Computed example of a mutant assay.
Amino acid sequence: MKDAIHNPGEDAGARIVTRFFPLSEALKPYVSTIYLTEITLPAGTRVEDYLHPEWANMRFIDGEAPLAGVGGAPAVPAPPFVATGPTSKASYFAAGNMRAWGIGILPAGWAKYFALPAAELADRFCDGAAHPAFAAFAPLTDALPRINDVDAAAALIDGHLVGLLAGTPRDDPAIVAAHRALVDDDLASVADLAAKLALSERTVERLSHRAFGFPPKLLLRRQRFLRSLGRFMLDPSMAWIDTLDHQYYDQAQFTRDFRRFMGMSPRAYAARPKPILGAAAFARAAAAGAAVQGLHKPAD
Rank of each mutant, 00 (worst) to 15 (best):
S208F: 09
H160V: 08
M1N: 01
T141E: 15
Y35Q: 13
P80D: 06
G72R: 02
L161G: 08
A195K: 10
A270Q: 08
H52G: 01
I16K: 00
A155K: 08
P74H: 05
R202Y: 08
T141F: 14
P173Y: 10
T37F: 01
D11Q: 06
D250E: 13
N57D: 07
R206Q: 14
A12Y: 01
Q247V: 05
V176S: 00
A290T: 11
K112I: 10
R19D: 15
A271K: 12
V31D: 06
S32V: 03
P107V: 09
P145M: 12
A198N: 13
E38A: 09
A211N: 06
I61R: 04
A153P: 00
A195Y: 03
A136M: 11
G109K: 06
I5V: 14
E120G: 00
A291Q: 07
E10Q: 10
L27C: 06
Y248V: 12
L106D: 04
W101H: 07
F93I: 02
F93S: 02
F261R: 01
F93P: 00
L193C: 07
G9K: 07
A181C: 01
Y30T: 02
F261S: 01
P132Q: 12
T37A: 02
D11A: 11
Y30D: 04
E201M: 14
A271E: 14
P77E: 05
L36G: 01
A177I: 05
R202L: 11
A75W: 04
F81I: 03
F81R: 05
P86T: 05
I5M: 05
A281M: 06
A166Q: 13
D11R: 05
F254L: 12
M98N: 13
A271M: 06
A270V: 13
A198H: 13
S91Q: 13
D158F: 01
V17M: 09
W240G: 03
P79S: 07
G13W: 00
A73V: 02
D142T: 15
A111R: 15
Y30P: 10
P8C: 01
A166L: 12
L219D: 03
A181E: 01
Y50V: 15
P139A: 00
L144R: 05
K196V: 13
D151R: 14
D245N: 09
I34R: 03
D300T: 13
T84W: 00
A152D: 11
S32P: 02
T84N: 01
Y249W: 08
G213K: 07
R99P: 02
L244M: 10
H52L: 12
Y269Q: 09
L164Q: 15
L121W: 03
E201P: 08
E201V: 14
P29W: 10
A252Y: 06
L197R: 08
G213N: 12
A287V: 10
H131S: 08
T203N: 12
I34Y: 06
L36Y: 06
A90H: 06
F212M: 14
A73H: 01
G69E: 03
P29D: 04
D172H: 02
L41Q: 08
P215N: 12
T40F: 00
L197F: 06
A268V: 04
M233S: 05
